[in-house]
Design a protein around this nucleic acid. Structure first.
Lengths: 146, 146
DNA sequence: GTGGCATAGTTGATGCGTCAACCAAGGGAG
DNA sequence: CTCCCTTGGTTGACGCATCAACTATGCCAC
């Protein structure tokens, strides 16, 4: 038999899940003027930090904890907009590199300041340093149980 | 000029946003065996609590903080699967009721226990009561600034 | 009553994410 | 060398969410 949540538990859980939804929406909204989606953004960040601005699909997927399929679709869409391109992988004929284009690099450099502002405005600058640290600690505790 | 985040701030922010993504994925995964998506679930919850198991699209959208469009698409899909149906609104010819079907009611009753278990396993039972309360308080503080 | 604006809802296009099916190359064990 | 399993990646279909465009009704000012 399952025990339902107490009113307090329900309230706190709902507060949290609602916040998560609002935050995702807010991130997307603030990124929109730059012409990038949040998935675009995170892919560009990882590629821009990689040596030679390129990563094997495999490694990029691992870095982002994304499925092969998800990444493949995303890189296809980004290729269509000139943000990245695929390149074959010498040494392993199965492999494919995802490579950041100059346009992609320009896009992430242009988008980053507004994104950081967005994160500050919605979270980091709203909490005290201690509160943010607590939030981070709780988040890591929950993550470690999954 | 924009100030980038400190390593600690970045770490805590990333912990939090990553947790949010994992949680959404986990909720969807645990609901999947019941044949419901998370959007299905929340719509069914609200309708099942409404008088006569029905709400104006307008009111349902407000309750969920969903756009008219989002809700219209969702109800269309749910109607196709027999979980809900539309009904015209006497008194305002523009209006439409979303009505829970017996199948929809059965579906939510069947899905709820596993969903609650899922929330407990991923969050509520992982934290101490004090920690959960803190998480809720921080979430509400952040929400109030948006 | 009519003109015009607000309200209620739908639709189509497009991006995003998952799942299942698929293909091709690598790398043993025999 | 061949068989077979694993690894790396793509594709197509479908559900989900947003945006912009659209229809239709309600309602107020005049």
């Amino acid at each position: 038999m399952t025990t339902w949540l107490s009113p307090d538990q329900l309230r706190d859980w709902r507060s949290f899940i609602t916040l998560a939804e609002m935050l995702e929406a807010g991130l997307a909204r603030d990124l929109a003027p730059s012409g990038l989606s949040y998935p675009d953004y995170v892919v560009l960040v990882v590629l821009s930090e990689a040596p030679e601005h390129r990563l094997r699909m495999q490694d990029l997927g691992t870095a982002l904890s994304w499925s092969k399929s998800r990444l493949s679709h995303q890189i296809r869409r980004m290729s269509g907009r000139g943000l990245a391109r695929r390149e074959e992988c010498s040494g392993d004929a199965r492999g494919v590199y995802a490579v950041l284009t100059p346009e992609g690099l320009a896009a992430i450099k242009a988008a980053a300041p507004a994104h950081v502002e967005s994160v500050r405005r919605m979270v980091v600058d709203v909490l005290t340093p201690a509160e943010l640290a607590t939030l981070g600690t709780l988040a890591r505790k929950l993550q470690s149980r999954m």
